[in-house]
Design a protein around this nucleic acid. Structure first.
Length: 308
DNA sequence: ATTCCACTAGCGCGCTCGGG
DNA sequence: CCCGAGCGCGCTAGTGGAAT
């Protein structure tokens, strides 16, 4: 059956609208909260553990899953939480999270790649060429023969710095964010230092985004490194690079979440920077809102210990 | 052999914008 | 004011590869 968006809301079955809204929410969730869910089915079957603390979220698989289910409970409206543990929910999450990732990687590497990375189409088209040209920029360490998730010049503001106060600030990061949430043409706007996405129907509008989220920045970082990598498919574990993309995503997420909680200056400024560019005029930034319930803090020094 | 998975080409819809 | 060109969106149908 064809889409019937032209029909008014009244003529559309409430059941159909229920599912369309859910699909929309799942896509938003993928791009703004978590691009992957570990053990999706089991997560949706899980009960909320009241003892769970964000603090321990990334310590073990069990706490990671609890983190996921807690994130879902914060994100989804009540009416969907009631039916979390159903086959419909599982199918919808699996299908539409996948579709959202597919659409995004196609957009970033193939459609916007040259504009985001200042390179030719040919540079991006061939895996071997990507490896040759960009391996260094996405974290290749020649002496250790592995990829480092933090030491990537492509993520840093001034090109080659490793300091944590410039991470996620690079032009490609901003362009990638623009491409995902404000459409392909927004990349050109960012490049020209112009306002993005005003007056156009973009996903940021469709999803009613009001501020930058940790999940969105973490996903952009993974998307950028993956787009320049020799991997052909975006999978949790990269076939050719052997990069554990899912783990890297969660590391970025951990860094950002802890940074917000601990009011780490670099992270707070990072979100302010993104909000200023992409959501000007909104006073409901993530940092402001989230900091109300923060508790005792330990000094966070993730960047130094890195890798687990 | 069959099913699943990741991704892509291309389509229709709804929107914006500019010319008449 | 309207009309049509063009754009960005999500979706469908399909490919080719991997897993079972």
């Amino acid at each position: 059956s064809k889409r019937q968006k032209n029909q008014s809301d009244e003529t559309q079955g409430s059941d159909e609208r229920f599912h369309q809204n859910l699909q929309l929410l799942v896509r938003k969730f993928t791009s703004t909260e978590m691009m992957w869910l570990r053990e999706l089915n089991r997560t949706l079957e899980m009960a909320l553990d009241e003892e769970y603390e964000d603090h321990d979220r990334f310590d073990s698989l069990e706490t990671r899953l609890q983190g996921q289910i807690h994130t879902l409970h914060e994100f989804l409206p009540e009416k969907y939480l009631e039916i979390l543990n159903t086959q419909v929910m599982k199918d919808t999450f699996r299908m539409h999270m996948q579709m959202q990732r597919s659409n995004t990687v196609t957009r970033i590497r193939n459609q916007c790649g040259p504009a985001i990375f200042d390179c030719s189409i040919e540079d991006l088209a061939d895996p071997a060429e990507r490896k040759l040209k960009f391996r260094k920029a996405i974290g290749w360490n020649e002496s250790e023969k592995t990829y480092k998730r933090w030491n990537c010049s492509i993520l840093h503001g001034n090109g080659s710095s490793q300091l944590n106060d410039t991470v996620f600030c690079s032009q490609p990061m901003l362009r990638c964010f623009a491409a995902i949430f404000f459409g392909t043409s927004a990349v050109a706007a960012i490049r020209a230092d112009k306002l993005v996405g005003r007056g156009k129907e973009t996903v940021a509008g469709i999803w009613s985004m009001t501020h930058t989220t940790p999940g969105a920045i973490a996903m952009c970082a993974v998307m950028i490194r993956w787009s320049l990598s020799e991997d052909v498919l975006l999978q949790e574990l990269g076939k050719h690079t052997k990069i554990d993309w899912q783990n890297d995503f969660e590391s970025y997420l951990k860094f950002l979440l802890n940074g917000i909680k601990g009011r780490k200056q670099a992270v707070v400024m990072l979100f302010r920077k993104y909000d200023k560019i992409f959501f000007p005029g909104t006073e409901t930034g993530y940092c402001v809102r989230k900091n109300e319930d923060d508790q005792d803090e330990e000094a966070m020094d993730m960047l130094n210990k890195d890798q687990e």
